[in-house]
């Protein structure tokens, strides 16, 4: 499963190093797989000495949100569709790409502020907000396989 140009772009990023580890997984659109994928990426980051808080808060929540969006929204919870995850971790940073088979969305327009008095009692609307609060960078683009969300977390 090659990432082609996307991987090439990451290699040129500041902070990227030769001792990077790359994992790729492909999961059916089923939310029961989310925890396993998070565990897998947490393990890789732990090897690179990312701190407990980044593993259990930033990474865990942001990746859960990205996978959940891909499965439930991008792929409409259709078990015949798949979500592809690529994680590239080095001692400086983690880059994750989550690709679904959907048409994509406007990240800015879809992110609302759940902390306003009008929104704080809403049951939904916190996913993208949390992803952006907890990651150093969140981007959406049309990748080779489809709609892609890229998360970057700098090791602290």
């Amino acid at each position: 499963m090659s990432q082609g140009n996307e991987a090439g772009r990451q290699n040129s990023r500041p902070g990227a190093r030769d001792d990077a580890r790359v994992i790729e997984v492909d999961i059916p659109s089923d939310v029961q797989y989310i925890e396993k994928v998070v565990e897998l990426v947490q393990r890789e980051c732990a090897l690179m000495r990312f701190g407990a808080r980044q593993l259990m808060l930033n990474l865990a929540v942001a990746l859960t949100e990205a996978l959940s969006n891909a499965i439930l929204r991008g792929n409409n919870d259709d078990p015949a569709k798949h979500v592809h995850v690529m994680a590239r971790v080095d001692p400086g940073q983690l880059v994750i790409e989550v690709q679904d088979e959907g048409e994509g969305f406007d990240l800015d327009r879809c992110t609302s502020d759940p902390t306003t008095p009008a929104n704080v009692e809403r049951e939904d609307g916190r996913g993208l907000f949390l992803m952006r609060q907890l990651m150093d960078s969140v981007e959406r683009f049309d990748g080779a396989r489809g709609n892609t969300v890229r998360l970057i977390m700098i090791r602290q």
Partner: peptide
């Protein structure tokens, strides 16, 4: 508890109401 995502938070809000 390990971690909670936005839908977990949403359920807590819903139950509270």
């Amino acid at each position: 508890t390990g971690y909670i995502d936005s839908s977990g938070l949403g359920v807590l809000v819903s139950l509270s109401k």
